[in-house]
Design a protein around this nucleic acid. Structure first.
Lengths: 252, 252
DNA sequence: AAGTGGTCTAGACCACAAC
DNA sequence: TTGTGGTCTAGACCACTTG
């Protein structure tokens, strides 16, 4: 059995890595200006187009910005954001980045028919069986995120393994169904702990406090809806930031 | 006086318009697949690179997605979103898209020193004078958005014209300071009407209800902070959606 | 004048999907 | 086999910023 080295990393991926390193280095040394596109393409031995292609992705994410005639600069404000509110970010990481020690508790797993809103969002057949995992995430022992992940049961090969579900539903879908989530559409709602299922008793909340509800449908690269998530955040402890860029499609 | 026709529209802009038309047409006729890149570039008489460049922008916004070997498709879910939660969207439009008749009331304009958080966000000198405009937006006569826009006074040429401030702070900055906002960094916070300034009395609220607070710093293309906005949304009436894509920078 | 990013081209080859 | 998108190139010219 001959072991092949990992190859076929595309030039684009290489350039991406290099640029990330450059950006991190700039961040550390408190500088903001990247080398010019020509210099970069020469140093990396790729065409300028390839460099620009990668840069465009970072630019549209807000990580860098360009000024014609002057150069390309890193956006320290964007890099400083604690939690970018992007999909498929593990809540444990969110809690860690906010400076707390994260723990999880699996409250329950319910198998059965989905409620109407979920079935609609996931384009389910009326008789489709779904799995709903309810979890609580704690920051230094204090409950700060409550979430319900729902997906169709027959996405999964074989039986449900609860222990694997606790850690990460995204990884679970990846490992047991080969599904990678690339984007989601989320509705942002302000609510209150008294409006939680069971009025918050399930989640050990007594007082009434404001919560942020992110209700979203997660999709694959081919735009197939695969998971419905309701996540309640205590924004007093969990700071969620977002970089928004001017729309290129809807404007004009 | 010879009138010149508007020229110098770049090929990219032309392609952008064409693609938008194509997408709208597909949307109307309930189809999802765009013509191939080669066909498009030939029909528009531009290189494939130019077509791809424009497509990449739409793709990163989630408007379209590609499947290698199959083609490019429009994302109807993204196109159906009522309010994309992008910066510089007028709140009146937000209200309209939610199906209500919008009206505005200018509550007050305060000129003076900014509070610490604002001064920090806008990188103001300690003695900088700011203008803060407080508004209420109504949907069918019901208050649904409360916002406070703060910017440095000496951005503006000449005196403040209150009437122009009512309609849109973005247009105001554009017309009186030549400033265009391209992006913002926003913190998403769940709160309650009782936590509003003056406990909501200023905004004519009696009962306590959940509100979504978007607290953001707006920037120009050159990443200069120019405006600080606190906007409180009644998400019971105003549905805010967001398409989130997997991070290309932070992941890996 | 020199350097930067912005636009644009023509053409090549590869990987994937469908028939 | 054909058509699709994905990657990649070398080179040109333009627009803007700075010295």
């Amino acid at each position: 059995m001959d072991i092949q080295p990992i190859q076929n990393i595309s030039l684009k991926q290489e350039v991406k890595r290099s640029l990330k390193r450059v950006i991190k280095h700039l961040e550390k040394t408190n500088k903001t200006r990247l080398p010019g596109e020509l210099e970069l393409s020469q140093r990396l031995a790729v065409s300028r187009v390839t460099v620009r292609d990668v840069m465009k992705e970072f630019e549209q994410e807000g990580i860098i910005y360009k000024i014609q005639g002057k150069g390309t600069f890193i956006n320290i404000n964007a890099l400083k954001m604690k939690v970018t509110l992007s999909p498929a970010v593990e809540f444990k990481q969110v809690i860690e980045k906010n400076g707390y020690k994260p723990t999880v508790e699996l409250v329950e797993i319910i198998t059965g028919l989905a409620e109407k809103k979920v079935a609609l969002g996931l384009h389910l057949d009326p008789d489709a069986i779904t799995v709903c995992a309810k979890k609580i995430f704690y920051a230094d022992g204090k409950p700060v995120i409550y979430c319900e992940d729902t997906f169709e049961k027959n996405l999964i090969n074989g039986e449900l393994i609860e222990n694997d579900l606790i850690e990460s539903t995204f990884e679970y879908l990846l490992n047991y169904a080969g599904i990678t989530v690339t984007h989601d559409i989320v509705e942002v709602i302000a609510t209150n702990s008294s409006k939680l299922p069971d009025h918050g008793q399930l989640y050990h909340i007594s007082e009434s406090k404001p919560l942020l509800l992110l209700q979203s449908v997660y999709y694959t690269a081919k735009n197939r809806p695969v998971m419905f998530v309701k996540a309640y955040f205590d924004t007093e402890y969990i700071k969620l930031s977002l970089l928004r860029r001017q729309d290129v499609y809807f404007t004009d």
